[in-house]
Design a protein around this nucleic acid. Structure first.
Length: 852
RNA sequence: GCCGGCGUGGCGAAAUGGCAGACGCAAGGGACUUAAAAUCCCUUAUCCGACAAGGGUGUGCGGGUUCGAAUCCCGCCGCCGGCACCA
């Protein structure tokens, strides 16, 4: 279809008009508790999109998909009488604006403002029913004031092991409060990216390269702000339970947190003790050597003098390797012998201690006992270095006298293990752990893969830390001094000495003669960790969210507050884990009323290009929403993205498919209007205030039922199919009962709001019950009794194959049905005198006759 | 390697234990038109048969459970996503 093609209905005229109307009338703004027009009796529904980073690229068809889904829910719930919180905002701190600033010298705030304005216009051109009064922007000082305030809450609290909850740091009685704060400073090896000039979180590093830009990342020790998310590891796993999230996402989070239960075992050496972590304490008798990580603090002590040269060379070689090289699974195992031995507590045996980079300092205790017979990695290492392999677990099917070879990692029965001989693995673990505890040689231990969250960045365009330094000690700023804004700088690059760009603002850094400001900034995730809370009360200047607003919008008797949260899978472990962590900490501190942020989570699938490939500029298969709106209208774009397939599924784009839904909308339009000679659309003369036939009633009420349940289950594609069936039915109705259209326009209005508003506002000229506007109508209800037909058609099967059909009254009993079916000529013919062995009757559906 | 998801016409899909292919696209035929576009109507999984009547086959492959399986179970194959020396 060319641009000059005459439009089948005047969407390009009315769509912008309705968008302006909604905007100017604040049509979708919703009151908060305590406000004048607020009715406390009404239920709430909080439906949220993952807010976008306002990139220079503008809106993408992928955004439109998720945003349309939530908009349908929002409009539907409003019509059902809910107060609907459906807000939008901008996750506007971040690298691209800063990179652009580096190149052009333009302040990121200017770029950000321009991009936001473009994004907002694009969203408005799709008719999304956001409450724009609640719009937020993470880079706005009135917003990040509270991001900084939350940081101070984390800084000022710790997780008390006794309660398992965050408490004010004042309840901590130990000597060094700084060692337990939820926000703390640590000198640690970090992911330093030279190209980006910053450190990155583990989650931002993919295969040894930066997620943004794909630049190499190296390990380097630096002083950094950390958030103690590991204190919440257990709760972050357990409390997934009560959430309506896809199982796959829950699993992704569980795997990321990576809980493993086992034992720490103490091995004595001549000079010290070595603590190792194992999930298989039942294999202790099979430990033939120990391995410690190259970064382990005891490497020096344990290396004997004549091994020093070799160990030193090995450690040096390792430290120069990138993470990518170190974690390459295909590479051969490497390691060196320290010269020392350790004593196995269960049998007093002396076993050699090795250093190898297949043991990671960051997990467990950075030391392992190697049981090559029952661990693949140890097996590989032992084979290469000719270390002994001792079998201590027999697969239960095998008799213990049979020889075992290779590596057996499964569970079985303990053998050659005096304390636990013959016990099944689970029991063996329990008994040996109990024995170790009794002997003071070990204890039950749980470790997590999850690491603390590296929270500082050497960037300009982020929230400054409300922290000052005095004589090497950090102190919080008073919350009354917030927001702490970034200073103006002439250059957004890090300084030559590697300090963050904020260090360039000497006056700003100078807090007093004795103290200076922290010059790191927070990562982009900070602002998105709590934005859903700010939406509840976005203009509050005295609190991050008022308690009444938070209790109303986040309440509802479930663990999570947001009723529906829609966004991409790419945030499965980053944003969603961070936000849960902040939420729990604030909940513990009494600032929030629910333990979880998001009750129901749905991931929309990716929209591929029409070639089935991921959309990208380089492939030239990118579809621009603006272009589609221009040709087919916003309603068509919305409807197409919902019709093309299930929300959560990956689906290719098809312009022909857009034309299909466009034609459907045109048919709906022509139900209401007919075009005259001059090209004006007049209300159709077919429309009459007449009752519907019983057949029409059945379709209308069947459609109400299906569309309602399909919206509730987010099955928008089948809801649209049903409305197409409805429309096809009435296209040929002459005259056409106006009641049918009155219902259809309400059912369709969440999907195609512009068309429905326009039609509604024109139809009122002839039919007075089209008063007010379509989006202010009450959702139609269906009458179940109208769906039931007296006569039902039964499928008649013989041995599971359809052989005939039977029309029969739905009140017929099973035996009546059976005799009626057996009397059918076709059935008698097919049976040819044979007697049925069995007749299965499924009421109102089918009869199956079983014969030999 | 481990974990998860998916596999149905020419295409997007529907049906989650009861008529496989709703709805849409594409294709073909017809009506309207001087003509075209748009619109409206019909056909459209596949094979045998005559485009009939009637019948066979068919939801990645091979088995199983069941009166009955796209749907449940077991074993494979393929594609997609996540994790990746986590002891």
């Amino acid at each position: 279809m060319s641009n000059t093609q005459r439009k089948q209905f005047p969407f390009s005229e009315y769509e912008p008009q309705w968008q302006t109307f909604w905007l100017e009338n604040n049509a979708f703004s919703v009151p908060n508790p305590g406000e004048l027009e607020f009715d406390p009796q009404r239920p709430k529904y909080y439906v949220l999109d993952m807010f976008p980073y306002p990139s220079g690229e503008g809106l993408h068809v992928g955004h439109v998909e998720g945003y349309t889904a939530t908009d349908i829910l929002a409009r539907y719930k409003r019509m059902c009488g809910f107060y609907v919180l459906h807000p939008m905002g901008w996750d506007a701190f971040g690298l691209p604006a800063e990179q652009y600033a580096l190149k052009t010298g333009q302040h990121p705030a200017i770029t950000t403002k321009r991009n936001i304005s473009r994004f907002r216009n694009q969203l408005q051109s799709l008719g999304f029913s956001y409450d724009w009064n609640r719009e937020i922007n993470t880079t706005d000082p009135n917003y990040f004031k509270w991001t900084q305030w939350i940081f101070l809450q984390l800084y000022g609290s710790w997780v008390n092991p006794a309660s398992g909850k965050a408490e004010p740091i004042s309840t901590y009685n130990g000597k060094d409060p700084d060692s337990v704060r939820l926000a703390y400073v640590a000198e640690m090896p970090v992911n330093w990216c030279p190209a980006l000039g910053t450190v990155l979180a583990n989650e931002e590093v993919v295969n040894g390269r930066s997620e943004v830009g794909g630049f190499p990342v190296e390990r380097r020790p630096m002083r950094q702000w950390m958030l103690r998310i590991t204190a919440y590891a257990q709760r972050l796993i357990e409390e997934l339970e009560g959430l309506d999230w896809p199982e796959s996402i829950k699993l992704l989070q569980r795997n990321w947190i990576g809980r493993s239960e086992g034992a720490e075992v103490i091995f004595r050496t001549d000079s010290s003790t070595l603590n190792v972590f194992t999930t298989r304490p039942d294999t202790l008798f099979g430990a033939t050597y120990l391995v410690i990580a190259p970064e382990h603090p005891l490497t020096g002590v344990l290396t004997t003098s004549h091994r020093q040269a070799e160990v030193g060379a090995y450690k040096k070689a390792i430290s120069s390797k990138s993470d990518l090289e170190r974690t390459d699974l295909n590479k051969e195992k490497t390691g060196v012998f320290t010269g020392s031995f350790a004593t196995n507590p269960v049998n007093g045996e002396k076993i050699p201690i090795w250093i190898a980079d297949y043991v990671l300092m960051g997990y467990g205790t950075g030391a392992i006992m190697a049981v090559p017979a029952h661990d693949e990695r140890d097996f590989e290492f032992a084979t290469k270095f000719s270390l002994p392999i001792r079998y201590v677990v027999a697969p239960t099917a095998t008799k213990s006298c049979e020889p075992i070879s290779g590596c057996f990692t499964g569970e079985g029965a303990a053998i050659h293990s005096p304390l636990i001989e013959g016990l099944p693995t689970a029991e063996a673990k329990r008994q040996i752990t109990a024995w170790l505890e009794k002997e003071g040689a070990g204890r039950l231990a749980i470790h997590y893969k999850l690491r603390d969250w590296l929270f500082s960045r050497q960037r300009y365009w982020g929230e400054p830390f409300p922290i000052i330094w005095e004589q090497g000690q950090h102190y919080p700023l008073d919350s009354t001094s917030l927001p702490l804004c970034q200073p103006e700088v002439a250059d957004f690059k890090p300084t030559d000495t590697g300090e963050p760009p904020l260090a360039r603002a000497k006056e700003w850094v100078h807090y007093s003669d004795a103290a200076h400001r922290e010059t790191n900034t927070m990562p982009q995730w900070a602002g998105s960790c709590w934005y859903y809370l700010r939406f509840c009360d976005s203009s509050n200047s005295s609190r991050f969210v008022s308690q009444t607003a938070e209790q109303y919008w986040m309440g509802g008797g479930k663990p999570g507050g947001v009723d529906l949260y829609v966004g991409g899978t790419e945030h499965a472990v980053l944003h969603l884990l961070y936000a849960r962590f902040w939420h729990k900490a604030l909940f513990d501190l009494g600032q929030l009323s629910t333990p979880e942020p998001f009750q129901k989570l749905v991931n929309q699938g990716i929209i591929l290009g029409s070639d089935g490939q991921k959309m990208s500029k380089s492939r030239g298969n990118v579809v621009s929403p603006e272009h589609v709106i221009e040709q087919y209208g916003a309603d068509s774009l919305r409807l197409y993205e919902m019709f093309v397939g299930p929300l959560e599924q990956m689906k290719p784009w098809s312009m022909k498919g857009v034309e299909g839904v466009y034609r459907f909308l045109a048919r709906v339009w022509r139900l209401a209007f007919k075009e005259d000679q001059e090209g004006h659309w007049d209300v159709s003369s077919e429309l009459k205030d007449i009752p519907m036939t019983s057949g029409q009633l059945r379709i209308v009420h069947g459609t109400i039922k299906k569309v309602t349940s399909d919206i509730e289950s987010l099955s928008f594609n089948t809801a649209i199919s049903q409305m197409m069936i409805f429309t096809n039915e009435f296209t040929s109705a002459s005259p056409c009962p106006i009641e049918a259209l009155h219902i259809l326009l309400r059912l369709l209005s969440p999907f195609a709001p512009h068309l429905c508003e326009e039609a509604w506002s024109k139809l009122v000229l002839r039919f007075p019950n089209f008063e007010s506007s379509a989006s202010r109508q009450v959702w139609p209800e269906y009458d179940e009794s109208l769906l039931i037909e007296n006569e039902v058609e039964l499928v008649v099967q013989i041995n599971g194959k359809v052989r005939s059909r039977l029309l029969i009254n739905r009140s017929a009993t099973s035996s009546e049905i059976e005799s009626a079916v057996l009397a059918l000529p076709k059935v008698m013919e097919d049976l040819a005198g044979k007697l049925p062995i069995r007749v299965v009757v499924v009421p109102n559906k089918l009869v199956n006759i079983v014969v030999h």
